[in-house]
């Protein structure tokens, strides 16, 4: 039907949005927050790790996961800050252009809407990627400094997978925020809507999970199979939340000893040497369904945003 590449002008949009994000006050505040979180988490983690150094072959990965009261681990901090950052970068992506009356100016240039929407998404992901990579390098450097141990190749590989998983997780919230920004006319409404979804999954999802697993399915306490079924229902419902998927990815990537992300039967453990770490690729295979689910969610949400945006009139 229409002619010309949908990517025309994509680079221009990405560059402009990236520059906007990286110089925005919004991003400054979040960067400071993340930096504080990283420093605090790493410092307390190193204090904790020093006590047990030499006992763990993957001491470096402990940097990301070790917590000491009252501070949570770095990974937990990210699970909290990443959705916030992604929502902050995306909540006014589309309706902001309408409100500034720049939409018709941009769309009257030789580009398709595809390029505008995708450009905004890529710029948001790019901004988060730049920030995260900087944090990641900082953390690794601090780890070297405090622990005096160099990470092994496998640890670097696992830490990189952790970085990728965090980006996919960020993508979910960014795509959701952009979707709401296309649907709602007021940026305040779209921000609130995205934050509500985040709250739902962060605070209330355990209740929802319990409701489905324990409230609706009464398992006979004497029947192990029924109990297994109940656990599986709970797991299924909880995995509808991107938070669960992300947490499972972190477990699989950062704890090499983990061999399953669900209930495991004694019979399946026959011949297994408990506590031995899995090779990187095996951990990756364990996490594969979660990766697919997260990336799939990103794509589905983006398509939703795309459909809503394509149907909108250019006029505000």
């Amino acid at each position: 039907m229409r002619e010309g590449s949908p990517w025309t002008g994509l680079g221009a949009v990405v560059l402009k949005e990236l520059a906007d994000h990286l110089t925005s006050v919004r991003m400054r505040i979040l960067e400071i927050l993340m930096l504080l979180a990283a420093l605090g988490a790493v410092y307390t983690a190193t204090q904790e790790i020093r006590k047990t150094i030499g006992e763990d072959p993957f001491v470096f990965l402990k940097l990301f996961t070790t917590a000491q009261e009252p501070l949570p681990a770095f990974a937990a901090f990210l699970g909290f800050l990443i959705p916030l950052t992604a929502i902050a970068l995306g909540f006014d992506a589309v309706n902001g252009e309408y409100n500034r009356r720049t939409m018709s100016l941009v769309l009257s240039q030789p580009i398709y809407r595809d390029a505008l929407l995708l450009g905004k998404f890529l710029a948001g992901i790019g901004t988060i990627a730049i920030t995260l990579t900087a944090l990641w390098v900082l953390l690794t450097g601090l780890g070297l400094w405090f622990l005096g141990v160099a990470p092994s190749t496998e640890e670097v590989g696992r830490a990189l997978l952790f970085l990728f998983a965090t980006l996919a997780y960020a993508g979910v919230w960014l795509a959701l925020a952009i979707l709401f920004s296309a649907h709602f006319r007021q940026p305040a409404t779209s921000a609130l809507a995205a934050l509500s979804v985040w709250l739902l999954f962060t605070v209330f999802w355990t209740i929802v999970t319990d409701l489905f697993a324990k409230g609706l399915y009464r398992a006979d306490p004497n029947n192990p199979l029924a109990q297994l079924a109940q656990a599986r229902i709970g797991l299924f419902v909880s995995r509808l939340s991107p938070n669960t998927l992300y947490a499972e990815l972190l477990v699989a990537f950062l704890n090499p000893q983990v061999r399953s992300l669900g209930p495991i039967l004694v019979t399946q453990l026959e011949g297994a040497v408990m506590g031995t770490p899995l090779p990187l690729f095996q951990s990756f295979l364990i996490a594969w369904p979660q990766i697919v689910a997260l990336v799939g969610t990103v794509i589905a949400l983006f398509i939703g945003a795309y459909v809503i945006f394509q149907r909108q009139e250019v006029r505000a």
Binding site: M1, R2, E3, R100, R101, S104, S108, I111, Y112, R315
Partner: peptide, 24 residues
């Protein structure tokens, strides 16, 4: 313009009704 919007928009300048720019 319905089929080749990019070609058309490359050849036509448009000043929208109460045009907006990026204020910052």
């Amino acid at each position: 313009p319905a089929r080749k919007p990019l070609e058309v928009k490359r050849r036509v300048g448009y000043l929208p009704d109460s045009v907006g720019f990026y204020d910052e």
